[in-house]
Design a protein around this nucleic acid. Structure first.
Lengths: 337, 337
DNA sequence: CTGAAAGCGCTTACAG
DNA sequence: CTGAAAGCGCTTACAG
């Protein structure tokens, strides 16, 4: 069905050998200028492009990066993906993206599939299930074969590889400190994401550390249990506790807190201050607009891609892995004083 | 660096020829059962998987679908992508996704790139720029080469290919009719997306058709000009016109309308009813929750993928293209009576 | 300066 | 029942 021009055809039409045509296209100095020009001319005429499959088979490189993401309906990962794509394509790499939907099994399948379709390396944010069961053999196989991996955001100590993470703990500390500075003393932390996630743990720890140091400040925690019932749980929680501030450990928690506060007739930020994580659509389109911890997802993704590309383009046996921490920033909007 | 097991190695270790090993792995009946078993055993031991590149080079099939999307931070496309991925992987296809970011130039680049990395077919939603300049030569090249294309959502008459679209016009008609049925007479249509988009045009047409038929109903239109100034434009518009209903032709328009109404002290839906398009995060997390036209993005994507896969798996010269229309539904929530 | 040959990892028609 | 050979489209060391 599809018949693309090949070296063979060019060679035939030019009365040259395939080798000569191949070399000419690379402007090999050992070929006469005249021949080079003839070849280029015909190649342009036919809009010849080398068959990527064949080149890859020879070179054992595909110039393709496998990207494994837990979710895509989540603004954070969507933005990270955007950053990855930009950085990759700038460096001549394309990406193949797979969404695990937080499933450990899917993650294993995708890693194997991409590995056997010969991606040059991987960029990964672990699925929730993987972090929960803590089983990462599928990545160990890659390591054994020297396939470079860069993990970002959701990482694991089990795998020795480059990592790009957010300073979640510090971010959380800063957010709580900001609330305290603006006069809040009865603070709650609300989360709708699983406490199995590395990021959830760190954010919670950060919050605790700060409130523990302040005797006059109390911290109440609400890990939402039923994700189909987030609103009711949060509404009840707000009503039962006389809070003056909430830190949502994820964007949904913060957005719903805003809406339920509105519903209960609380004034924001007069009666209650709210800070969220992830500077996504919900934060920018809530009313009032959410003060939020921006994790600079795009930078995070771009950085991960850049690290991987460097490793791929300059492979070295004794490469030593590193962990980069991307600083967050607190974006002040209207949900805090 | 990466050394995967090959047929050659298996053959050597088993003292068989490469051909015999290859056939054994396919359980070719002309090979003795004993040999087949020996081969499978060793292959399992080494976890042998055929090199996808080599298989593709031989078969001229990659079992890969190229997906070209205008945006990914948009819930609609993110959901569509999810649907595509599900349907594709169920049928043994993987997908390579490229985001054009609404750029015509990027779209051309990606189509060429994917074509030369030999994807078997394409699923496309056109970029805004492409719909504006109406130049689709890059797809015509694919057609000439018999590479199957399925367009969805943002399609073009210029290209003869399968299409999966939403009944945008009817959706818009139904939404307006619903507003009229609930007693609204002074209705506005607000849009933050470009009027160059096929979908924008259809939605607007639908709205006009219904209001034209109702003498006592007036329709005012606000195409937001400056996308950095959406809120101010909408706030002013709401203040200047004494509306009792707004249909947002995109999710942002509707979400901002809700927020600005709140800001102006209007009660929703008592003073003003609001309906949006695209049943995304913003619609579900606004306060009050948005009544919205769901385009069933996931189904849309899944359907597009299914059509493409069928075409790929049963290629026929005299295939006749079709256009499938996916019905929308109006999801009633709290922003309307 | 040009070309024949080997090889990347597979498949398959053909021979024995 | 097994294997040698050709070929997918390229690259590159080697020969002339």
């Amino acid at each position: 069905m599809r018949k693309k021009v090949t070296l063979k055809q060019l060679a035939k039409e030019l009365n040259l050998s395939i080798s000569t045509v191949s070399k000419s296209l690379k402007n090999d100095p050992e070929i006469s200028e005249k021949t080079i020009n003839r070849v280029h001319e015909l190649a342009n005429f036919y809009n010849y492009k080398p068959n990527a499959l064949a080149v890859s088979l020879k070179s054992n490189k595909t110039k393709t990066i496998g990207v494994i993401l837990p979710e895509i309906l989540n603004h954070f990962y969507a933005k990270a993906l955007f950053g990855i794509e930009q950085a990759a394509s700038k460096n001549g790499y394309k990406i193949v993206t797979c969404i695990t939907n937080e499933s450990h099994k899917k993650e294993i399948e995708y890693v194997e599939m991409l590995n056997y379709s010969s991606v040059d390396g991987f960029i990964v944010a672990l699925s929730q299930e993987t972090q929960m069961v803590n089983e990462l053999d599928h990545f160990k196989v890659l390591k054994r074969d020297n396939v470079p991996i860069v993990m970002f955001d959701r990482v694991s100590d089990e795998i020795e590889c480059d990592k790009v993470i957010v300073d979640d703990k510090i971010a959380s500390k800063n957010a709580i400190q900001y609330l305290i500075n603006t006069g809040c003393t009865k603070i709650a932390v609300i989360t709708t994401i699983s406490s199995d996630l590395s990021v959830a743990k760190l954010r919670l720890e950060g919050a605790r550390e700060i409130t523990d140091k302040n005797d006059n400040v109390s911290l109440i925690e609400l890990p939402v249990k039923d994700n189909n019932n987030v609103e009711d749980e949060i509404e009840k929680f707000l009503k039962d506790n006389n809070l003056d501030a909430v830190l949502g450990l994820d964007e949904t928690a913060a957005a719903v807190t805003i809406n339920m506060s509105l519903k209960l007739g609380y004034k924001i930020p007069k009666d209650i201050s709210v800070i969220g994580f992830t500077d996504g659509l919900l934060s920018r389109h809530s009313y009032p607009k959410l003060t939020t911890v921006s994790q600079h997802a795009e930078d995070l993704g771009a950085k991960a891609a850049q690290i991987l590309v460097n490793q791929l383009d300059n492979f070295s046996e004794n490469y030593k892995v590193k962990t980069e921490v991307v600083k967050t920033s607190l974006i002040l909007r209207n949900s805090t004083n």
